[in-house]
Design a protein around this nucleic acid. Structure first.
Lengths: 339, 339
DNA sequence: GCCAAAAGTGTAAGCGCTTACAATTTTGTC
DNA sequence: GACAAAATTGTAAGCGCTTACACTTTTGGC
């Protein structure tokens, strides 16, 4: 095999008959480049299939040409959808997508933050997916000088796309209450150390408050986003002796797990227990799972676009925006009136 | 924010009283460094909190420190699992993981191959997941000089990890035949342009052959790996007028889709139709889907390890190995004796 | 002790890019 | 047309690291 020499900016310069410097400027759409030069460079570059070396560019002070997506886990349906949608946007904008999964582990998460400065040398931007941040972590992220955007993270000093989690949870809970249930259990996301401090939990509680009901601690359990997580959580709830007549799971997969656990304990849905999730997973229709639908791929793509925009204007100050996409209650067969 | 000057290897060299070169060697544990020098360098480095600049190191050293995972889609359960498992291995070995999803689109796939040489400048290795390769594509991959490894790709000139797809499909089909079914339909993977040329299809056909049955073309349909893909495929099968008494789907998610479509057409499982999938998705237990289980994360991790090994010894010639992991038939409730 | 081989260390040339700043060309004005 | 200002392009100096190769020190056999 012949080791073909890497195509460098020098090659483009020679082919286009211009200097390296002009090529560099043209390629980055900097001002002070004539239309003609611009055209020549573009032509030469595409003819040679030139792509700047991320390392060299970074070393010299430019960007790396890649962005990282940071997700609590890469396997849950929501994240896989969002990641792929974002990857598409990044690819179209010429960025490589580096995947960083925290694998739902505190140690890995700590490691991520302690390695942040290093990561900052290897990527230009970070797309954060549903990471529940402590103030010091927000600070660390801002300090590292990367372009930032996120999905599903309220109240952060960078662009965010999400749904109104509190409202969505309220919708789900309200649905359950409207069916006459008052012994409600909740599988709350355990991404936050305190499961009662997530927006979805707040929505759940608010709905109860409005009906002058209180949340019984035994009816609250933390759960990860996977089917197994949901199953474990529901099993624990049951083994505590909790006997809710309805359950709100923070995502559909956790709800699937809850369905599994309930059946394993001889409880039938919706006869004995109503169950509602959130997401509208493709399986939910088949299973008849009531849920609150949210646009997942849209959120990933939208946030990725915002990040790309930030990447282009990283120097200009910017007022962070927060975009809320709509959610919709979908009543199916796992929820019914309390008998 | 004060932009503090970054600590460079130069600083470490000065503090330790040695040359940059010796520091560089000491830091990377290369031979020809005295114990004393090693100690001095380590001390100086830790005192200064020195971390090598990834960009500079890559520029000088040739390596990029990242590998790409190429998957037909990133959203299907199998791929999400494999990707996360591989990402973990790569991370532990100090590599960044670049995600490339072909999104099941021929155009993107073509683009990937035409951009391959470029990608080769941005990563050190490629982990290919279930990509059905034409001979020219194999050649292109080998020519690009990257370390290679794959999951689920038989007969390639690099290390591969997979299951015996043909056998696994045979196991599933054999199970159906053993239950007395002979009008068998198959949702075959459409990753290959000809759906009857995949290993799983061959296993399906071989089982039929052994029972002196032939495959009716109307009972064969291509399907992607998602639930919706399976649903569409099964719907098409039905709309053709095909009335199989049993269906083999190339993966569990496609089987879930088939289940959905069957129910939509008033066919009950397993009363009217038996269904078997492949993977053992976490939902399969709950749904009672019979399937052939395969270790998914193991395959991703195993192949990632093989790639890391290749990365370290990229210069040394190497005899490609093909590792087959075991599969296991799991009989549940979607398959029953033909009545 | 002597000398060659081995071990340890230093010098300097890049890797491919960005960016002051200098040099050149174009533009606009009177 | 002449000339200054503006626009464009080129020169050259790094960015922080690795590595071939030269150089110095240590080792060990006789």
């Amino acid at each position: 095999m012949v080791r073909t020499h890497r195509v460098t900016i020098q090659d483009v310069a020679v082919l286009s008959g211009l200097s390296i410097c002009t090529v560099s400027r043209a390629l980055r759409n900097l001002p002070n480049v004539s239309e003609k030069a611009q055209r020549q460079v573009a032509e030469a570059a595409s003819k040679l299939g030139y792509k700047a070396s991320a390392a060299a560019s970074r070393l010299a002070g430019g960007g790396t040409g890649s962005v990282a997506i940071v997700a609590p886990t890469a396997t849950a349906w929501f994240f896989a959808q969002a990641v792929e949608a974002a990857e598409e946007v990044f690819g179209d904008s010429g960025y490589d997508t580096v995947l960083v999964s925290l694998r739902n582990k505190a140690t890995i998460r700590r490691q991520f933050f302690s390695d942040l400065e290093n990561l900052a040398q290897r990527v230009d931007g970070l797309l954060l997916l549903n990471i529940d941040l402590a103030p010091a972590e927000v600070e660390a992220l801002e300090a590292c000088g990367l372009a930032l955007a996120s999905v599903g993270m309220g109240n952060v000093p960078w662009d965010n796309v999400g749904i109104d989690d509190e409202h969505a949870a309220w919708q789900a809970t309200q649905h359950l209450l409207g069916l006459g249930h008052w012994d409600l259990a909740v599988l709350s996301s355990n991404e936050h150390p305190v499961v009662t401090e997530t927006p979805r939990f707040r929505g759940f509680r608010r709905a109860l408050d409005e009906h002058h009901l209180t949340v019984h601690p035994d009816f609250v359990v933390g759960s990860g986003p996977s089917i197994d997580d949901g199953r474990r959580a529901m099993t624990e709830l049951i083994s505590r002796g909790a006997r809710p007549t309805a359950v709100f799971a923070h995502c559909d997969e956790a709800a699937f797990g809850a369905l599994t656990a309930l059946r394993e304990h001889g409880l039938s849905v919706p006869k004995n227990v109503s169950v509602i999730g959130m997401d509208d997973h493709p399986m939910s229709g088949f299973l008849g799972l009531s849920t609150v639908a949210q646009p997942v791929a849209d959120q990933g793509a939208f946030a990725a676009n915002l990040l790309c925009e930030r990447l282009l204007n990283i120097e200009t100050p910017h007022q962070p925006s927060n975009h809320m996409l709509d959610t919709k209650l979908i009543e199916r067969k796992t929820t019914r009136h309390k008998r």
